[in-house]
Every structure is written in structure tokens, then in C-alpha cells.
Amino acid sequence: MPTPLVFIDGDQGTTGLQIHARLGHRPDLRLLSLPEAERKDPQRRAEALNSCDIAILCLPDAAAREAVAALRNPAVRVIDASSAHRTDPQWVYGLPELGAAQSQRIAQAQRVSNPGCYPTGAIALLQPLVQAGLLPDDYPVVIHAVSGYSGGGRAAVQAHEAPGPDQTPPAFQLYGLQLAHKHPPEIQLHAGLQHRPLFVPAYGHYRQGIVLTVPLHLRLLAPGVTAGHLHAALQAHYANATEVELMPLADSAQTATLDPQALNGSNRLRLGAFENPAHGQVLLCAVFDNLGKGASGAAVQNLDLMLGHAAPDRLVA
């Protein structure tokens, strides 16, 4: 069997560079790259797209749609890291941990849409609880999340790492204040919610890593549900998930802080549930690398499924 040829369209962007770093030394595939002078040439890009086995699109939404439209070779399979197709029913959602059969769907798919960084954590926390009937699907979900500035792309990296003489990068920056961020429809659909969640994102003055939290009032859940029930449902759902770890409830009780950078460089996703029984409140949390499980690591995980094998976690220096 010929060695699969993989073309990363947009390999000079933040996600593309990380994917290239994860795949560059692997003997089980070949990487197709275009010279710098040809990267924006529509004809050369179309030729590359149609000559590869699997294309990974690391492009803005509009450019990703154009790339898909340029495909003429029906044998080419696609992983789209943009948000262009994440709610499209003709694309398989690239979160293997979504359910028992999702890995198989990804493995057999022609078109896979990589999840967004924030939705990865939110859906991983919410979907198993909705599915188990512990979290009502009409719950008024509120999601708070803080990411490293690399989540803002090249412009944000430049502003934080090489600011101009009169620029001072903010230590903390809340954004999406018009509540029109592109991620809520993705979260709503794949978490199985009836209503659009309220999503409050922010950037911190560090390069990468996410802490995402979802506060819950026990009085609004199914009768008798406790943090223990929520934790047990997550534990059952992720029992065989190689990239997800669940903090024991006992550890949560002893944990005072969460470090958003704790899993940087990996494809790991750490989930937890914090509780205050006296107040009837639970805080669900997710920690992961926005450039790892939130982007490039997830793309490589999906690529490995499409190639017919699951590769071990690969750390990026």
C-alpha cells in the first residue's frame, strides 16, 4: 500500500505549523508542501489539493469553503480545521470522544470537521450529562473560558510577543461582548442543547492553554442529582477514552487553583467537577491546550483514525 500523501493547506499559520511539527518526522506518511511563492496561487493549491490522499485545511472559513469547492478528485479526504463546516450535517464532527461510534465514523469519513478549541471542552463536559439525562437539555448553560493569546491567531501573537513601541499587551482581555461568537451554535448542536448557551471567552497574557468552566445549580438539574452522579456519568462516558482524564472528586476537593498551561504540548483533555453541597452548586471544568486538543492535536488524532490507526500522544517542544 502506498504511503499516504498529506497536504496541509495553510501550513504557515499557527495551527498549520503545529500540525506540521507533529507530522514532520513520521515515516508512515508523506507531507506535500508548496514553495512560498506558490502558496497563494489558486491553480497550484488546487493541484496540490487534488493530488493528495488527505488534505488538512488550516484556513479562514471562506478560504476553507473555496478549497473544498476546488476539489475535483473524489478520492481526496478532508480534515477542515476552520469553523466552516462544524454544524454541517454532511461533515463528520471530529471529536472521537463524542460517543462509542464516533471514532468509527471519523475513520470512514470523506469529510471531517475539526472541533473548535472552546467547544472541545464545553461539549466534552456537557454532552455526556445531557445524554445521561442528568443535565436537562433546556438548561440555561453559561460557559466561561480563558485561552492563551495564540487562540487569537497571528495578529494576537504579534501583539503579545512583539508589540510596537507604544503598545502594551493586556494581561487579561474579555471579548465577544455582543454575545455573537461563532462557537455557541457548534456547542449547542453537538452537546444536545435546546437553547444557545451563553458563552464568555477571554484571552490571558500567556501563549497557550485553556481553562473552561460551566457553573451548575443542582436545584435546576434532574431531581436528586448530585456532583457524584455527574462525576460518575463523565467517568463512565470516558472510561475508554485515551486522551481524556477525569480528576477524582477527592482530588477536586483538595484543589485550590487550575493552571491553564498544565497540558500544553499534549493532546490531553482534563475534566473535573468541583462542588459546594451547602450551596447546591457545582463547577464543571476542562483544562487543555488550545493548540493541542483544541486544534492541531485533534487534527492529528482524526488523521490517525482516517489512516486506520491511533497514534500515541506526541508532545511538541
Rank of each mutant, 00 (worst) to 15 (best):
M1S: 13
P2W: 04
P4I: 04
P4H: 04
V6F: 04
I8T: 07
G10P: 03
G10S: 02
G10N: 03
Q12K: 03
Q12W: 01
T15Y: 00
G16Y: 00
Q18H: 03
I19C: 00
R22I: 02
L23P: 00
D28L: 04
L29R: 02
L34K: 07
A37S: 12
K40Q: 14
R44G: 02
A48C: 11
I56R: 00
I56G: 00
P60M: 05
R65L: 08
R65H: 05
R65E: 10
E66T: 10
E66Q: 14
R72V: 10
V76A: 04
R77T: 01
I79V: 07
D80E: 07
S82F: 02
S83R: 02
H85F: 12
D88F: 01
L95P: 06
P96N: 04
E97S: 09
E97W: 01
A100L: 04
S103Y: 01
Q104D: 10
R105T: 01
V112H: 00
V112C: 01
N114L: 00
G116R: 00
Y118D: 02
T120V: 07
G121L: 06
L126A: 10
L134Q: 09
P140E: 02
P140L: 04
V141C: 01
H144Y: 11
V146G: 07
Y149T: 12
S150M: 08
R154M: 10
A156P: 02
A159I: 06
H160W: 11
P169R: 12
P169H: 11
L174N: 12
Y175S: 14
L177E: 15
A180S: 15
H181V: 11
H181I: 10
H181M: 14
K182D: 11
K182M: 09
K182Q: 13
H183G: 08
P185I: 11
I187Y: 08
Q188E: 14
L189E: 06
L189V: 08
H190R: 11
A191I: 09
L193V: 13
H195T: 15
P197R: 12
L198R: 15
P201V: 11
H205W: 02
G209S: 11
H217K: 14
H217I: 09
L220D: 15
P223Q: 09
G224F: 11
T226A: 12
A227K: 08
A227N: 08
G228S: 14
H229D: 15
A232L: 08
A232E: 13
L234P: 05
A239R: 15
N240C: 13
E245D: 13
M247K: 13
P248V: 13
L249S: 14
S252N: 15
T255W: 06
P260C: 07
Q261M: 10
L263T: 06
L263E: 06
S266Q: 07
R270C: 13
P277A: 13
H279V: 04
G280M: 05
Q281R: 13
Q281W: 01
V282P: 05
L284F: 09
C285R: 06
D289L: 01
D289M: 01
K293V: 03
A295C: 07
A295P: 01
G297R: 04
A299F: 00
N302T: 05
N302C: 14
M306E: 02
M306V: 05
L307Y: 08
G308P: 09
A310L: 11
P312K: 02
L315N: 08
L315H: 12
V316Q: 02
A317G: 13
